[in-house]
Structure formats: structure tokens, C-alpha cells
Design a protein around this nucleic acid. Sequence first.
DNA 1: CGCTATGGATAGCTGCGCTATCGATATAGT
DNA 2: ACTATATCGATAGCGCAGCTATCCATAGCG
Lengths: 221, 221
Amino acid sequence: MRYEGPVRIGELSKATGIPVPTIKYYLREGLLPAGERTHANQVSYTAEHAQRLRLIRAMVQVGELPIGTVRTMLAEVDSAERPTDSMLGRLSGALVASRSPGAHADEQELAETAALLQRHGYTRTDSVHVRMIADVLAMLHRLGRPELVGIVDHYADLALQIAETDLATLTAIEDRDNLAESMIIGSVLGEALFAALRRAAHATVSARVFPEDKVDTSSAS
Amino acid sequence: MRYEGPVRIGELSKATGIPVPTIKYYLREGLLPAGERTHANQVSYTAEHAQRLRLIRAMVQVGELPIGTVRTMLAEVDSAERPTDSMLGRLSGALVASRSPGAHADEQELAETAALLQRHGYTRTDSVHVRMIADVLAMLHRLGRPELVGIVDHYADLALQIAETDLATLTAIEDRDNLAESMIIGSVLGEALFAALRRAAHATVSARVFPEDKVDTSSAS
DNA sequence: CGCTATGGATAGCTGCGCTATCGATATAGT
DNA sequence: ACTATATCGATAGCGCAGCTATCCATAGCG
């Protein structure tokens, strides 16, 4: 194979499909670590930079995360030499922080939500997550749909199963170095993946439940 | 009970906490139907307008949907006289449309995804949903994590269970008039609710899976 | 030696979700 | 009745986020 000189920003751009100005922007924002400077005015990047760029794009485009959240999560995996329990906790905490609250549950609703989660086997009833869940439940009440709150019981059990699956997949990964990155990918893409599957499942199940409807194979673009 | 005059925009604002200019904006954007005009220059609103406003806020703040998607979904429930299977399909189609693709799966990946879904019991392998799922899987490959693709099998089964729960809850609702609205609420808030539960579950399960500070790093490079 | 690409800095642009202002009415309070 | 406040509808503007474009001195490349 031919010798390749230092990888510069243009090749990074070609390899990832991301425009050069955008890569510069990510560098400025601290999402992409600076490359190794070969001369006073030249920098060379590595394959890891390309990988990091793909990860950023996945988080931004699929996960729809704001830049600040992406930075927080990436800083997390960069700072820790070794992925731990608390790291996954901090990652999902950053994820939750990127979602706007909307309705604010009061203290009682918060306590009830925490109790509900504990009943379902949740041990880490971290404030951020409980708050988010309680806020959604409070919103259901505000919308005059208290009967929909009941779904949380079934959801809670299924979410635990999902998490079991995710963790089993993560621990099966040999490459411990990239485990932290896999945590991000699993969290962010997994969320998008499950949401899409849930929507598809709604279509399938509702076709069974609403029999009066003749099936309209909507292949609308 | 005291007689109350026509409800005007100010009272709507007080009842919902939404600023008057924002309500005017939603009117302009066609999210909120126009009120009944009492005089050439006066309009009166109803309690349904307040409810609609709360729904809009839930979709925008909790669901983080763009205004255009909110309009599409609300137009759907307004146009149909009776909620049907295809209506839920169109609603979730609009939801999916609000998410950016990112990576584009090719034809083969699309077909494989459709086959996978059918294997799991999905009958309505609508193009939009399959496309979205295939795109996420393609992104996993691009990120060099093909082993994470395996989670889709378990996710697919659990998503069907979620959908069963959702539809059971929906069909248990007495009030058929507001069923369409409940579909939106269930779709949008349900998605946010489950995502939050999943993150909370990650914290709980990872506490079990990662023995406290005892991760073996002996083979770290 | 000229051409393109690069690095680094700074400024600008686009789209979205609101806000603010305005003038002509309408209603409310006294 | 009369003044103060609110409303309607239209139009313009603001603030933020995520890029994108421009500049210029320097580096590499043939």
C-alpha cells in the first residue's frame, strides 16, 4: 500500500462525509479532540478522529442531542480510563438533562413515583430520572388522562428487561477500550431504535385491534 | 353559578399559563382552531381550546416535536370523525417523519429489516418505520458495532408488548370522542415516558452488573 | 514557483419558536 | 358616557442553535 502522509482535515471530511467547516466547528466546540500538531501550522489526525466524528453525527442526527450534551457525554468517556457503573449513570443523566421538563411534578408526585419504581425493582431511583418520569405523569394528569398513568407499571417492567438486554450486550463486548463508546451508542441509538420499533408495533397491533378498518397499505413516501 | 362572558384569549392564557402572543402564534400556525367570532373584531374560545393548548404544549415540550409535525397530527385527529387503525398509523408516521434520518440504509438492509420484523410478528411493515429502523441499524454498522445490531431482536419483541399495552389501554377508554386525542397522548408521552424509564433502568441494572470498582483492566492496551 | 489545502479566527447565515409592536376596535369599570 | 384596558390581526423582530463562509498567513505538492 502506498504511504500516506499525515491525515489532514480534508481527508477526514472525505472519509466521513462531514464538511470541513463543520469539522472545524466540532473542534472549536470541543467535541473532537485536537489532532497532533506536526508543524507550527499543521495538524494531523488519526482514524480515531474519524470514528469520533461518526459518533458525533450519530448522536446529533439520530439521537437529536444538542451539542452541549454531546460534549458532556464525550468528555465523560474521555476522562474515565475505565467504564464503570457510575459512568453509565452519568451518561444517562446527561441524556435526560437534554430533554426539556414541561410540566413540573410536585413533591408528593415525585415521592410516589420513586416508590412506584422501587416496587418494580428499581434500586437507583436517581433524582433526574424520577423527576423526568414524574413530570410526564403529572402532564398526563394535566391533560385529563389519569387513566393513562396506569401504563407506567407495565412500562417499568419492560424497561428493566430492555436494560438487562443492553447490559448483557455491553458486558459481552470483548473490546474493553471501546466499552465507554459502546455505552453511548447503546444509550442513544438504542433509544431511537426502540422508539421506532414501538411506532411500528403500534401499526401492527392496531391493525388487529381495530377490525372495522380496511387495510390501507399506505406506501406514502 | 355566575355567568361568564365569552372566553377571550387572556383567560385562555391564564388558564394554561401560555403567553398571549404564543397563543396567537399557535392560531396563526393552525395548531389551535379559530374561536367563534362574536363580533366583527371579537372572538370567543371554549374549554376545548384550553385543552388543545395543553395538548400542544405536551407535544412541543415533552415530545419535542416541531410545530409542523404537531400541526399534521392535530389535523389528523380533527379531520377524522372516528379513530381508526389507519389513523394511529398516520399519527406514528407523522411522528417518524419528524426525526431526521442520518444514515441511509440500502435496499438490501431495508429488505432484511422488513424480514426481521415479519419474523417477530410485525404485519404492517410500513415503509417509514422500516426505513427508520434500518437506518439506525445501518448506523450501527457504520460505527463499527455490528454486534449491537443483535439487540433489535429482543427490542422487537418488547416493543410489541408495549404496543399491546398501549392499545389495551386505548380500547379501555370509554370516551370515544377523545380517543383520537388519547392516541396522540399515548404515542408522544408514552415515548418520552418509556425512554425515561429505560434510562432509569440502565442505572439500576448497571449497578448490579458492574461490580463496584472491580472491573478487570488487566488486558487493557 | 505557482497552486491548492490548511489552520485558526471571526463573522454571517438559516430556521425555528416564539415576542414585541401597532393601529383599529371592543368591552369593562365607574 | 367616558376613559382605561384588552383584543384582534398583521407584521416585524429577537435569541438561540447549528452550522457555513470568508480571510489570511503558512505548508505542502508537483
